[in-house]
Computed example of a mutant assay.
Amino acid sequence: MTTTPARWLRKGIAALAGSLLMLSFSSTALAGAPQVKTQAPGFYRMMLGDFEVTALFDGTLDLEPKKLLTNTTQEQVGKLLDRGFEKDAVPTSVNGYLINTGSKLVLVDTGAGGLFGPTLGNLQANLKAAGYQPDQVDDVLITHMHGDHVGGLVQDGKLVFPNATIHAGQEDADFWLNKANLEKASAEMKGFFQGAMASLNPYVEAGKFKGMKGGTELAPGIRAVPAHGHTPGHNIYVVESKGQKLVLWGDLMHVAAVQFAQPQITISFDVDSKPAAAERKKAYADAAKGRYLVGSAHLPFPGLGHVRAEGKGYVWVPVDYQQIR
Rank of each mutant, 00 (worst) to 15 (best):
Q39S: 15
K179L: 13
F269Y: 15
D320F: 03
S268T: 13
A287F: 04
G102R: 01
H167A: 01
P226M: 02
G151Y: 12
A256C: 01
Y132S: 09
T216M: 13
P91S: 12
A276L: 10
Q322V: 11
A297V: 09
K158Q: 13
P300M: 04
M197L: 05
S103K: 06
V160Q: 13
R291I: 02
K281L: 15
A55G: 05
A283Y: 04
K128T: 12
T2C: 02
P134W: 06
K79N: 12
Y44M: 05
A168Y: 07
M197C: 05
R45C: 00
K282W: 02
T4P: 00
D109S: 12
T38G: 00
P41S: 14
K208N: 03
A55T: 01
Q39T: 12
L115Q: 12
N100H: 06
S241N: 05
K79V: 08
V258S: 05
D172S: 07
Q136G: 09
D251P: 04
G229C: 10
P202L: 06
G121F: 00
N181M: 08
G49V: 11
A29G: 01
P34K: 15
A6K: 14
N178L: 08
K179W: 10
G102I: 05
V315K: 14
L182D: 02
D88F: 02
Q39K: 14
P318Q: 05
K37R: 12
G147S: 12
V77Q: 07
V204R: 12
P202T: 07
K208S: 07
L105Q: 02
Y44D: 13
A164W: 04
Y284D: 01
A287K: 02
G117W: 09
G221P: 05
K79T: 06
K289D: 11
P202W: 10
Q244I: 00
E188C: 00
M253S: 09
